[in-house]
Design a binder for these strands. Structure first.
Length: 192
DNA sequence: ATCGTCATATGAA
DNA sequence: TTCATATGACGAT
């Protein structure tokens, strides 16, 4: 039985400014649907002319959001605060609802598992697989991590490889290292 | 220590 | 079905 992921309809894209650059947050009617790292070219740097992403996944609808505006603005406040807190090495606090409809059932289970890893700790892809009841699906877990549309808030950076290696990271390994270092006050990550 | 190879789960084309 | 993965285990250098 194949699950049926639905591409979320993006109703608003807002930027989140951080010390590490400007992130792009994409919202659907159900919450935060995607978070892009700086420099992914989907960033709404041109706030007003509202050039569309036109790649289907990132339609930029301009600074004033259509219906649902109050909710989106509330979510965006939470998201922006969470992201900036993370970069200060603090707990993200309250999160906006995450629209995770793009994922298959398996991917959503993986993402839920990631969110259960406490800050400052890591789990191997194999351990995550085992926690899902599929001890041999390590590789599939890695694949699901790579499909994570909302890095940082869904802490895919806390998944590392079993041998102590970092594994991979969509936005670039540098981000993964930075995030892990921020969460670990004592350097107990394999890389430190 | 490093490299190649195989087994395995999942999803996309 | 075939191909690609952000894996993991094993054996041969």
């Amino acid at each position: 039985m194949k699950s049926k992921p639905v591409k979320p309809v993006i109703i608003a894209t807002c930027s989140i400014e951080t010390t590490q650059g400007v992130f792009a947050a994409h919202y659907s009617a159900d919450g935060l649907a995607r978070l892009d790292f700086p420099g992914r070219k989907t960033v709404a740097a041109n706030g007003k002319n509202g050039k569309n992403g036109t790649d289907g996944t990132n339609d930029f609808l301009g600074p004033k959001a259509p219906a649902g505006t109050p909710a989106v603005r509330r979510w965006h406040r939470l998201a922006a605060r969470a992201v900036n807190r993370i970069f200060k090495g603090r707990a993200p606090g309250e999160l906006p609802p995450l629209d995770v409809a793009v994922g298959t059932a398996f991917q959503r289970k993986v993402w839920a598992g990631l969110q259960r890893i406490p800050a400052g700790q890591t789990k191997s892809y194999g351990q995550l697989a085992a926690a899902l009841g599929a001890p041999k699906a390590a590789r599939a877990v890695g694949s699901a991590c790579g499909a994570n549309p909302i890095p940082l808030l869904i802490p895919c950076h806390r998944a590392i490889s079993a041998g102590g290696g970092l594994g991979g990271f969509s936005g670039g390994l540098g981000w993964k290292r930075l995030l892990l270092a921020l969460e670990t006050d004592e350097c107990r990550t394999p890389m430190c």
